[in-house]
Design a protein around this nucleic acid. Structure first.
Lengths: 188, 188
DNA sequence: CCTTATTAGTAGCGAGTCGAAACTATTGCA
DNA sequence: TGCAATAGTTTCGACTCGCTACTAATAAGG
């Protein structure tokens, strides 16, 4: 009876939803890109907080990511730390003021909360499939949590990353990693 | 077994999907906003193609919409027509060159096409619910098609809009309208 | 060792988004 | 007739975004 749910409709709905959220949300003095970068930094592990990782995550260039991070740093929401091992690389950590920015649900989140758990679960799995397919097509990284990664190993003390060869606390294992590669038959 | 599908995850997936699509898509010389505006104009009826309508649809201001439309006009993808009844108002029509831009599925659309019809239908209905709730909250307009509008009336020759008091061809009735108000128990 | 890559991050450019505010016309109302 | 509302534009400042060119540091190979 109803139209064949054409592809364009779904595309439009996603676009419109994002625009509505962006118009409404505008969390304090942060625009959507800055908010997304800040949110990523807050959830990424200490090996994945460099400008290039943010660029990968936001599907943009290093140049753009660099500027977004500088804008966040100017507002003291993140702080830069230069690495000792590799003097080229930089790590940005979220400051307490930055964490404050991330508090409280956005208006889009409030709306998502009105969905029933079943509908929400189904929505999440569909979106996840779309994101993974897009990532696969462009050779992008998945940025999942360490505990769903093929390089992750459970030990007595917590976990261990076989790729970087470092121990991981349970808190570490729940953060996003740039090197994440989904283990077989596990949702990323 | 799996996590309680937290709200933030869904928010993130939508954001990430939009960013991936924006990075990939970049349809010719058009950025996402211009593409969205062009797509809207192509699907809106002749009473809904003014800058203020585009602003409403894109959930932005008239000033921003005005600039986006000027950019499209500079590229000869849309053409401006001043109204005779109301000398303030302007209507933008999509040119043949503009229609060409809209041809062919975007990469996001290609990915959406890989979903099964059932999953796609479920995804569409969830997204529709989210968009409607967001719109309801901010008092925005739904921009549905005339044939799902409470002002629409079926006649022998096609349709009729009770609000604007104008006849509508079947093609008209399938376009988006700024004045659209969902009829009860019909998906918009 | 020393010379190339290669890599990480940055600066600058030009086009454009975006909100906000100020500013023309034009129309509506009282 | 006069004032308020409306439609659209302009300008401003901050920012995104891709791009190119650039510096500094590390890696690789002869």
């Amino acid at each position: 009876m109803f139209a064949p749910t054409d592809t364009q409709t779904i595309r439009d709905l996603i676009d419109r939803l994002t625009r509505l959220a962006a118009a409404e949300e505008w969390n304090g003095p942060l625009n959507p890109s800055q908010f997304a970068a800040l949110g990523y930094l807050a959830r990424a592990n200490r090996f994945s907080r460099a400008p290039s990782h943010v660029a990968d995550f936001l599907a943009t260039t290093r140049g753009t990511a660099s500027q977004t991070l500088k804008a966040l740093a100017r507002k003291d929401l993140i702080a830069e730390t230069r690495s000792d091992e590799d003097k080229r690389s930089i790590r940005y950590d979220v400051t307490p003021a930055g964490l404050e920015m991330l508090e409280g649900p956005s208006s889009l989140e409030k709306v998502i909360d009105t969905l029933s758990p079943e509908v929400a679960a189904s929505l999440a799995s569909s979106l996840k499939a779309l994101v993974l397919t897009m990532l696969h097509q462009r050779g992008g990284r998945s940025f999942g949590m360490c505990r769903t990664c093929c390089h992750h190993e459970v030990t007595e003390t917590g976990g261990h990353c076989r790729l970087l060869n470092v121990p991981l606390s349970p808190a570490d294992a729940a953060q996003l990693c740039h090197e994440h590669t989904p283990a077989e038959s596990l949702q990323p």
